[in-house]
């Protein structure tokens, strides 16, 4: 169990990991990839984004577990997932271009 600044930092990391993971999961869906990149995603990109998305969410859970008692960590993680999904949806609605950076980070670029 951690306290104070270290705990706050790790919780922040958990929120970021959940957000990035959720965004990758969203990008692995045809319609949202289309929204961001304007083209259809390749089969490889979809698989890659799904794996990375799952990894991001898993990192989020790991960070939560590092900070709190397991029963509390799981709740923090699930609630943070809801928040991440809301943020990703809002980004896709109003600023889809921002997610290009995350697609690039995952090594998945739009096909010409």
């Amino acid at each position: 169990m951690l306290e104070g600044g270290a705990a706050a930092l790790l919780l922040f990391a958990a929120i970021v990991a959940n957000g990035v993971g959720m965004a990758w999961v969203a990008l692995s869906m045809d319609v949202h990839w289309q929204q961001v990149q304007g083209t259809a995603p390749s089969r490889g990109a979809v698989r890659r984004l799904r794996v990375l998305g799952a990894l991001g969410l898993a990192c989020g859970l790991a960070a939560c577990l590092r900070v709190d008692h397991a029963s509390m960590a799981v709740l923090v993680w699930i609630m943070a997932l809801s928040a991440a999904a809301l943020v990703v949806t809002c980004t896709l609605t109003w600023r889809p271009g921002w997610l290009k950076a995350l697609a690039w980070l995952a090594g998945c670029e739009a096909r010409p």
């Binding site: 869906m29 319609v31 949202h32 999904a85 990703v88 609605t93």
Partner: peptide, 8 residues
Amino acid sequence: REFFTFRP
């Protein structure tokens, strides 16, 4: 399929 969808 529409998990992340909002079309204002």
